[in-house]
């Protein structure tokens, strides 16, 4: 089961410069583990453990077929063959 994952500029150091890579998994969690096995180090940029198990980092957005995964189960969001996953870092900041 191949799922195309679009990689943002800032994470392309992990994919040898590739803008999109294939990964596998029936949930976002599993997909991230699959990414990690081919591109070591990338997982830590996407998830963190704040004491209650792994969660998506606050300033990382992941979309499955145009939908923000935070609205469809976050790391438990389900994936099917042919889905497209897009990773985008938040554009955020400010004086605080």
């Amino acid at each position: 089961m191949a799922i195309e994952v679009r990689i943002p500029t800032i994470l392309r150091t992990y994919t040898g410069g590739e803008k999109a890579v294939d990964a596998e998994g029936s949930t976002l969690s599993a997909l991230i583990d699959s990414l990690e096995s081919n591109h070591p180090g990338i997982k830590d940029r996407l998830v963190e453990d704040k004491g209650a198990g792994l969660e998506l980092r606050r300033f990382v957005n992941v979309y499955i077929n145009d939908e923000d995964v935070r609205f469809i189960g976050s790391l438990d969001a389900e994936l099917s063959d042919g889905d497209q996953v897009v990773i985008l870092p938040a554009v955020a900041g400010g004086a605080a």
Binding site: A90, A92, G93
Partner: peptide, 10 residues
């Protein structure tokens, strides 16, 4: 603080 809305960003 500023942050783009996630669907606007997409």
């Amino acid at each position: 603080f500023y942050e783009y809305d996630s669907s606007d960003l997409f």
